[in-house]
Design a protein around this nucleic acid. Sequence first.
DNA 1: ATGAAAGCGCTAACAA
DNA 2: TTGTTAGCGCTTTCAT
Lengths: 341, 341
Amino acid sequence: MDKLTIKTLAKELQLSVSTISKALRDSHEISAATKRKVLALAEQLNYSPNPYASSLRKRKSKTIGVVIPEVVNSFFSQAINGIESVAKEKGYHVLIYLTHENLDNEKAILKDFESGRVDGVLLSASRETINSTHISGLIKKDVPVIFFDRVFDDVETVKVITNDFESAYTATKHLITSGCKNPHFLSIISNLNIISNRIDGYKKALQEHHIKFSNSNIINCTTNWEHNYKLLLKKMQSSKKPDGILCSIENLSVLIYQVCEDLNIKIPDDLQIVSFSNLDTASFLNPPLTTVTQPAYEIGSVAAATLVKALEKKNFIIPNENIVIPSVLIKRKSTKNKILS
Amino acid sequence: MDKLTIKTLAKELQLSVSTISKALRDSHEISAATKRKVLALAEQLNYSPNPYASSLRKRKSKTIGVVIPEVVNSFFSQAINGIESVAKEKGYHVLIYLTHENLDNEKAILKDFESGRVDGVLLSASRETINSTHISGLIKKDVPVIFFDRVFDDVETVKVITNDFESAYTATKHLITSGCKNPHFLSIISNLNIISNRIDGYKKALQEHHIKFSNSNIINCTTNWEHNYKLLLKKMQSSKKPDGILCSIENLSVLIYQVCEDLNIKIPDDLQIVSFSNLDTASFLNPPLTTVTQPAYEIGSVAAATLVKALEKKNFIIPNENIVIPSVLIKRKSTKNKILS
DNA sequence: ATGAAAGCGCTAACAA
DNA sequence: TTGTTAGCGCTTTCAT
């Protein structure tokens, strides 16, 4: 049995390959009758065109590359959901790559993309990433890169983000008005401006309430659970221990609960908690976790839609703009929600 | 500026394209000196070979397709993690597709794979899937399909699964020995044998403890949250209401907590719960959730490793076997853990 | 050890 | 409306 290609159809129907090709792609040059015949035979033989031959010829892969730090994370998995929904609708395929928060991985992935494997890239940077130099190669090769969530200001492209500064500000203010005198900021070591923006929002709230900020207010975690656990444990046993925490990373909120359980610290009486988090289970934690819930699905779908738009329009220049989709503070029982008089 | 291809290198170095090609792929036919020159120039010019040209010629895409029902789910995202780790190690790329539990989506995706877009497939079937007829096309085109978690027995291939029957049996027994007289099974409507196996395990435990089984013991959910909520609400208000639930689907455990909260049902006093779940937050729910925790990462990585092995060996026939990686029952406070005397 | 040439399956000028 | 032809960029015999 021969390989089933466009040639097979051509021979069978006594038509040229180009006619078949055009018919399959519903070209206006081809008569309705011919199209029908071609489609019928294709259907009958169960023909499907080789996408790589097509990609090679058209220099378009109809594929987008998604690069994220991790996937076991409500935010990122919801973002993937959003990305997939528009990819599917627009006929794009989604290649997924995880950096595991490692810059070298990120570099290698983006380097690979210079081969033309993907038409465009959706990137959320690793926590180790400090600048955008490793992106310039891609930009130079005209592969559009759109950032989401963890972005870099110095790259001229669309960045789809949430209002990190305001969210952190609002969340911190919520802690303070709920009685916290010494709110801390729990985060990861990173130069990501998503982190610095949140810190700035946090600081602004402190300032407004005349609470002195010191660097020790910021608890910097790594990717090592044991290390983080000991770090926080120590912090919660220190003399100047926090009475409130704004947690900047979803996965770290579990850490806080663990430490509180082990030290018998009562939430929210001894410690109030707000976390950036998209956990479905936030309402059912003990106690229910007050969250800054990010519009993860929308961030993903808007980023993907913007990318596809850039890909489809020829000569479309990606504007250098921030698309900001706000987060929402959902108050639950891990904070006291009392109003200072 | 010309396009940067293998030809560019050839011209620059006064060598033939075939020499360049071989040198880049470290062929033994090429002298060390030449290899060095080629590699150096490639590096200098920042050349990267077009993967689609290569795929077309070699009839290999170095790409695997992963088809899963959803991604916002600890089990599946952990499985992706496992898949990605071996893909990366073996130099494979991962295309992700979501069926959203819809059979037509699943069919369309698998149909597309007949084009040769992927070298092999990792599939976890949608809940609507009732048989494997839609897979036969792929098999016929020699695209290996390996199942994980949600599998079909009638396909002759490797299936990487957990011990659903035993796990459900053990979990149900745990409910009963903890005092449940009327444990129910919460699940989705589906012909998936993952579900029937769990039901069988559940039934066996009932039987062993002389608890009569009736069909009303099985609560069948859909993908509609509202519907499920009302269903469970009603159930929990009925005269023969359950005093224990084995929840077969991670995402439904939140539903139970919600209903209990709204009806003021105390867990575990009024209702004990065990859920198949890989939630990181299980320990911190109120109360902590007793789980059947599945080896999701391992299931993903073993499935991927098996697929890659099949892809790399020529004439390798995929055996028709089940690879079973056991789950573990983690007892927490949503069950009473008392021992019947 | 290197090169010439054919061709993977498709698309797009251009011709007819 | 249909056909001819020349590639897309790479790999692979088969010569040399």
